[in-house]
């Protein structure tokens, strides 16, 4: 099991003319699960995309490192190869490109011991089948166009499957629970939880609901509000938020 960290320091970012993240600082270590909660529009998905390098966002200041590598200076695909994975809130349709094709292309030669591939490197389609089984995802989706005509829950399983195949060092999972039925939620949560043990995956799980966090047990919970981490605590924080909402936090800050 490897150790390392995804370290976000005083990150300010946004879209041209608007600062959305206004100083985010947090560190996820290998094997840890951090939950990020926060009201709609507080910047959770923005954080996820800024980490992954989505076009359209600009970094104003701050740093992000993955095992010491300066992520923000890398193009998206190299961030992924460095071991970052993003399970998107709204996975994008790619007509005519199947999961098999995409994942085969994403890792042309997986070497045992390579960053992010240190456990169970093997035939990609073999791994896809075994990952599909673990989360109860029908194999016929493997050869269909990515996300095209998939239901909301199927898309989230699809994202989870990719995470399992790619074996990243750190995974940002943006509302991986939304759209999942009860059984799928349990299976997906369990899969991610197991990954933290199997290869020391570090997780930043963005969610609105504590349901997920009952399966995927967070070591740390952060509340993001108006682009800042306004509270950080242990798993009870999720319970408090669940009970009382965000009112107590949204007023925090200058």
């Amino acid at each position: 099991m490897s150790t390392g960290e995804l370290k976000i320091e005083d990150l300010h970012a946004g879209i041209p003319g608007r600062e959305i993240l206004r100083g985010v600082t947090l560190t996820v270590r290998s094997g840890e699960v951090h939950a990020v909660m926060g009201p709609n529009g507080s910047g959770k998905s923005t954080l996820a995309h800024v980490l992954m390098g989505r076009p359209g966002y600009e970094i104003l200041s701050g740093t992000v490192t993955l095992d010491g590598i300066d992520l923000l200076s890398l193009p998206t695909w190299q961030r992924a190869r460095a071991g970052l994975f993003l399970g998107m809130q709204h996975p994008i349709e790619v007509p005519g490109v199947s999961l098999v094709t995409a994942l085969t292309a994403s890792r042309p030669e997986i070497e045992p011991g390579e960053v992010g591939a240190d456990a169970g490197a093997g035939d990609v389609s073999e791994r896809m089948r075994s990952e599909a089984k673990r989360i109860g995802f029908d194999e016929r989706f493997l050869t269909r166009s990515l996300n095209v005509d998939l239901s909301g829950g199927e898309r989230k399983r699809n994202e989870t499957l990719q995470m399992g195949v790619l074996r990243p060092r750190f995974a940002v999972l943006d509302e991986i629970d939304s759209g999942l039925d009860v059984d799928a939620l349990a299976a997906v949560g369990r899969r991610v939880e197991e990954a933290t043990e199997e290869w020391g995956l570090g997780v930043l799980a963005i969610t609105h609901f504590r349901r997920l966090l009952k399966v995927l047990k967070p070591d740390v919970v952060h509340v993001l509000s108006a682009g800042r981490v306004v509270a950080t605590g242990e798993s009870e924080l999720a319970e408090i938020v669940d009970r009382t909402g965000y009112a107590a936090y949204t007023g925090v800050g200058p």
């Binding site: 992954m52 998206t76 190869r81 994008i92 790619v94 490109v97 995409a102 994942l103 292309a105 990719q162």
Partner: peptide, 11 residues
């Protein structure tokens, strides 16, 4: 679409 594939490590 490009971003989605690149976020999976595709060049």
């Amino acid at each position: 679409q490009r971003y989605y594939l690149e976020s999976r490590g595709v060049e």
